[in-house]
Design a protein around this nucleic acid. Structure first.
Lengths: 256, 256
DNA sequence: TAGTGGTCTAGACCACGGG
DNA sequence: CCGTGGTCTAGACCACTAC
């Protein structure tokens, strides 16, 4: 109902419905383990068709908020807030969303020919130029992560114009039309090298949590390939998946 | 077209369409970076409505195989095989799918009252009984992971009947009607304790990659809460997410 | 058996991309 | 401008759950 009376007019209808339901769920209106109203009931309540309600519910399902099973009403799984794509790709957006004060400083920026791995990840011809950025990320001034990002030159030129102590790189990039639409992440463990140790204030050889990420724009063109190394105990990565839609997988590494 | 002529008749129509498209994509029919036919074209080709085609394409989108953008045809992102939900929850299924020889041995199995954290994770009343299993997992006889699983008794009783050296626990459980439908994973880093060191053959205090996982059945009832600790260099976790459907998130840990 | 979600259809209009 | 995917509707039938 909050649809015609509410201010949440912009954008698709099903998003408004999803947002409203999400709010109700996280507010505990249905309780954890409780049942949602039937699709037909919701359709009537919001004054939309059942298809639109289903589209909204599919979003909640993908976020792991509700189950769905033929024959019974949907069950509320959890009441946890789920992070958005933006919060995931951008350290800055994420940090702010958890009430932390993010910072960053570019330690090194160079333009050079891509090595084999880089050109493969960014889908460039071998030897094409890339811009490589080494950056420390902080929370409340405390270093927590070292970020090594590689960009194709058309993105890298934009990055190079950003002040070295800018909090966010993603935001100015987006303002200039660089759109992050998809990302592949690989999470594992790595030992700190001399740079890591110096920048993070830990010992060389200490274990760090590593996230490697390749982001692509809506056309599928890679816009960034980044390797982030976190101090232990500062972050954990969480994933939800279901028999309906899975995104996570293990990857094997052969010894040596 | 392979629809009416094919043998892939069982199940929803859109799955057949998705499977066929997936096959064509991984076979390279459209090339990496190529364009898919328009939805209307596919609808005509398969003799289904546009809605059904969209349902199939949504599945490919969720798997990170194709992009989609208003105004242009869908772009093929990658031709990589995507792992199934089963491969994700089950070490055994995963290991086999990458051509490794999985093994396992139960080191300890006890039935006792749940502590606070356990009863919360499994949504049991405080003090309810649980079954706790400590197990080493191997690849080709080499220990790579220590698994600490906590089950509600109704599942734990089934687990207790499985031979100590059984390769898989998930498979017998599924045969007896325990269904894993959803899972939440948290990935971070932890230091090996004395048990880990003994069972994995590493030093105590060495960093391990930790995956904590809570699995629920289709009704949303928790069936397992497990903490897996991997030797460094044996696995990496990969996640795909997009602006359309995200499942991964960071989680912050306040110092101390 | 009644209610529910899962699937499928046939049509409509719109917003965006690219020629 | 046209073709494309994004959104939405109204209705239909089925498979399954719970009573």
């Amino acid at each position: 109902m909050r649809d015609d009376s509410g201010e949440r007019a912009r954008g698709p209808l099903y998003r408004s419905v999803a947002a409203d339901l999400r709010e109700a769920i996280t507010a505990g209106d249905y309780g954890s383990g409780g049942r949602l109203p039937a699709e037909s009931t919701l359709a009537e309540r919001y004054g939309v068709s059942r298809g639109t309600v289903r589209q909204a519910l599919a979003a909640l399902r993908a976020d792991g908020l509700v189950t769905s099973r033929r024959g019974t009403r949907r069950v509320v799984l959890g009441t946890t807030r789920v992070q958005s794509f933006a919060e995931l790709v951008s350290f800055t957006t994420w940090a702010r969303s958890v009430g932390e004060d993010p910072g960053g400083r570019v330690e090194q920026l160079e333009r050079r020919a891509a090595d084999a791995r880089e050109s493969e990840q960014l889908r460039l011809e071998p030897g094409a130029e890339v811009v490589v950025v080494l950056r420390v990320r902080t929370l409340s001034g405390r270093p927590v992560m070292v970020e090594r990002s590689v960009y194709p030159v058309w993105v890298g030129e934009l990055v190079a114009r950003i002040p070295a102590d800018a909090v966010s790189h993603t935001e100015p990039l987006q303002e200039q039309g660089v759109v992050f639409a998809d990302a592949d992440h690989t999470i594992d463990l790595v030992l700190a090298d001399a740079d890591d140790a110096r920048l993070l204030g830990c010992r060389a050889g200490e274990a760090l949590l590593r996230e490697r990420r390749r982001s692509t724009d809506p056309v599928g063109a890679p816009v960034e390939w980044s390797e982030d190394r976190y101090l232990p105990g500062t972050v954990a990565f969480t994933v939800h998946n279901s028999i309906a839609a899975s995104a996570l997988s293990r990857r094997h590494r052969r010894p040596h």
